[in-house]
Amino acid sequence: MDTSKKGQQKYAEMVKKASPNSPVFGDCIKAFVSGGIICTIGQLLLDFYIGMELSEKNAAAWVSITLVGLSALLTALGIYEKLGKFCGAGTIVPITGFANSVVSPAIEFKKEGMVFGMAAKMFVVAGPVIVYGTLTSMLVGFVYYFVK
């Protein structure tokens, strides 16, 4: 087997030819509709909470809490995983996807105990979101502090 750089490149082309691509168009339609539906539910919830005479900021927080809770329920029932297989990014990108990525390892790793399993692994997928979100917000803060 020719494992030189050139041989590897040639093989990479063979692999590319032999490997089917993801059905991008169909995937995008599914992502659009499912992601759109989740956002619409978010909007309905927002209108509902504002209708309950909450401030806009508090209403938005309640929307997050409600969606996270719903996602956790669907994840625990094994439904979110099935939705995710079908909807792709449509169920990953909304905050429900974030919740799913926190709840999933918490359930999966509880067998390793409630401290080193459930709790320690809870942010194994979503941890980077918090880390980089925090760092980016600090960057934004620095710039804002010195520029404003």
């Binding site: 992502a31 992601g35 978010g42 792709g88 990014a89 909304p94």
Partner: peptide, 11 residues
């Protein structure tokens, strides 16, 4: 808008 943001993720 929500749907489109998800489509970018899918791509």
């Amino acid at each position: 808008v929500g749907g489109l943001i998800c489509v970018i993720g899918q791509l």
